[in-house]
Amino acid sequence: MTDDGFMGPPWQMDWTLKAQAARDTLPENVRKTVDAARTELVTAKDPYFRGIDADADLPDGMQVRPLESSRPKGPRILHFDNGHGWMTYTLIPRVEDPQIVVEEVFWQ
C-alpha cells in the first residue's frame, strides 16, 4: 500500500478468456515474451505509463501508449517483440484491489 492509501505494485492481473486463449496458442518463445511484458506491467509504478518517456525503463522492443488518445485513462496497448505483437489492457483503479485486465493478445 502506498502513502496515499492506494494499493501499488505488484498489481493484480486477470485475462479475458479470449486473451488467455490467444496467449496459449502462441509459440513458446513468444509466450515467454508475453510473460516478460506481463511482468513489466504488474511491477510498473504506474501501469498507465503517463508522461514523456514514461515507458523508457521498459526493455528494448516494448512500448506503451493509449489505445485512444481521447481517453487518457482508458485502455492501453503494450507493443512487444519490436512491434510484432501487442497486448491491450485496462487498469481498474479500485482502492482496495486495483487490477490490470488484459483484453487482447496478438502476435504476427
Rank of each mutant, 00 (worst) to 15 (best):
76 R>P: 05
51 G>A: 03
56 A>E: 13
98 P>I: 10
100 I>V: 14
75 P>F: 09
54 A>G: 06
47 P>A: 13
16 T>D: 01
41 L>G: 11
73 K>R: 12
76 R>G: 04
91 L>A: 07
69 S>Q: 09
43 T>W: 10
99 Q>M: 15
3 D>R: 11
32 K>F: 02
71 R>I: 06
61 G>D: 08
84 H>T: 02
29 N>F: 09
31 R>W: 09
17 L>Q: 11
17 L>D: 12
65 R>Q: 12
44 A>C: 08
21 A>E: 14
70 S>P: 01
44 A>V: 15
92 I>R: 08
55 D>A: 05
106 F>T: 07
27 P>K: 06
5 G>D: 10
10 P>R: 11
39 T>W: 00
8 G>D: 03
52 I>G: 01
78 L>G: 02
15 W>K: 04
72 P>V: 01
59 P>I: 04
9 P>N: 09
28 E>C: 02
31 R>D: 01
32 K>S: 11
40 E>P: 06
82 N>Q: 10
62 M>S: 04
12 Q>C: 07
69 S>G: 15
71 R>S: 10
13 M>F: 00
79 H>L: 14
24 D>Y: 07
22 A>T: 02
54 A>Y: 00
21 A>Q: 11
33 T>I: 15
3 D>A: 14
7 M>F: 02
12 Q>H: 06
90 T>P: 00
61 G>W: 08
63 Q>K: 08
46 D>H: 05
92 I>Y: 08
67 L>G: 03
55 D>E: 08
